[in-house]
Simulated assay, not measured.
Amino acid sequence: MEPTVRLDLYRQMVLIRTYEEAILREYHADKKPVFDIGAGLIPGEMHLAAGQEPVAAGVCAHRIPGDSVTATHRPHHFAIAHGVDLNAMTAEIFGRVDGLGRGRGGHMHLFDSAANFSCSGIIGEGLPVAVGQALAFSRRNTGNVAVAVAGEGAANQGAFHEALNLAAVWKLPVLFVIEDNDWGISVPRAAATAVPSNADRAAAYGIPGVRVENNDVQAVHEAAGTAIARARNGGGPTLLEVHTLRLWGHFEGDAQGYRTDLAQVSGRDPLPAYRAALSEAGILDEAGTQEISRQASERVEAAISFAKASAEPDPAHVGDYVFA
């Protein structure tokens, strides 16, 4: 892989992590001394994707204008990697009028029509939506690909199987991405899923199934590149599962008493591991590391400032923009 591509992957991962750390800071800033999920500038649940950066960075490196992504309730990493407007996304997370949904949706309901991005708190909801998008791309012969992202728990939903079957029957340009972070909220994968790898399920629909281990961003990039090129060339869908990592809780405030792997989690962080690999390869030095971090922080803090400066919605207009 070219050094420039490897650096781009690292930059994307750093931007995502920097953003998630900033949202973590702002989310908890005014929820002390006793945690109150309904208090503060960002009330409600918050699902952050620290540790899952390699999946979004590796997949979205292959996007072209017009491609679509349907993401999960843990959406920020894919939104950033897919090119969603950072200012408008952050304003939406803060519930402000300059947000993607005018402050009506919050962090689990990010919709950016310009970027062809959406997400939902409903498990598996984006899978059939992506099939519909892929059908439109196919009918219009645009050369675009739909990417549907779901967690390993969603692979047990009926929508997962229905979406894969229809995409295979119609040979649609869609990539199904399963983020296997080992935990469906507090349930370990092995306790809820009969097969060791969801990628094995692709065989039932006559499509390729690929599993990437070790949260390896370069392996994700390679596997996604093959699948997306196949889809663009009329080869149909692929199921890609990535064994990734949830560094933090299912949601902020999650005590994680159920996790038997907590002692090992920090040592599996993909960011320092990839930084060390680039350094060993002579691609990234300390000065470069600092500059990438500075640029990411500058961009993220500008988005936070934009969101805080945006007005809160007027309660008198609560029904506006809710129904198109």
Results as ranks from 00 to 15, higher is better:
R230W: 02
L247Y: 10
H243L: 15
A255F: 09
A227G: 04
G249R: 05
A255P: 15
G257M: 10
P237W: 01
Q256T: 15
A231Q: 02
A229M: 09
A227L: 05
T226F: 04
E241R: 01
I228L: 07
R246H: 13
E241P: 04
P237R: 03
G257W: 08
Q256R: 15
G236I: 01
L239P: 00
N233I: 07
G234F: 12
V242C: 05
Y258Q: 13
A229W: 06
I228R: 00
G253Y: 08
E252F: 11
W248Y: 11
T226D: 11
Q256A: 15
H243E: 15
T226P: 01
A227Y: 04
A255W: 08
L240H: 00
R232D: 06
L247A: 09
N233G: 15
N233H: 13
T238Q: 05
R246C: 10
E252N: 09
G249N: 07
A224H: 00
A229T: 13
E252V: 11
W248K: 09
T238D: 03
L240D: 00
G225Q: 04
T238A: 08
Y258S: 14
F251A: 14
I228N: 00
R246M: 14
H250K: 06
G257L: 13
T244M: 08
L239E: 01
A231T: 03
V242G: 03
W248D: 14
A231C: 08
V242K: 00
R232I: 08
L240F: 00
E241C: 06
G235H: 12
R232P: 09
L245M: 13
R246A: 14
G249K: 05
T226Q: 10
R232C: 07
G257Y: 09
G257T: 14
L245K: 08
G225W: 02
G225E: 04
G253H: 06
A231K: 01
A255I: 12
E252T: 11
H243K: 14
L239C: 03
N233F: 07
R230K: 10
A224S: 06
E252I: 11
R232W: 05
A255N: 13
V242M: 03
A231S: 05
E252G: 09
T226S: 10
L247G: 09
A224D: 04
F251S: 14
G235N: 10
I228M: 06
I228V: 12
P237E: 04
L239T: 01
G225K: 04
G234M: 11
D254G: 10
G225L: 03
T226E: 13
T226A: 11
L239G: 00
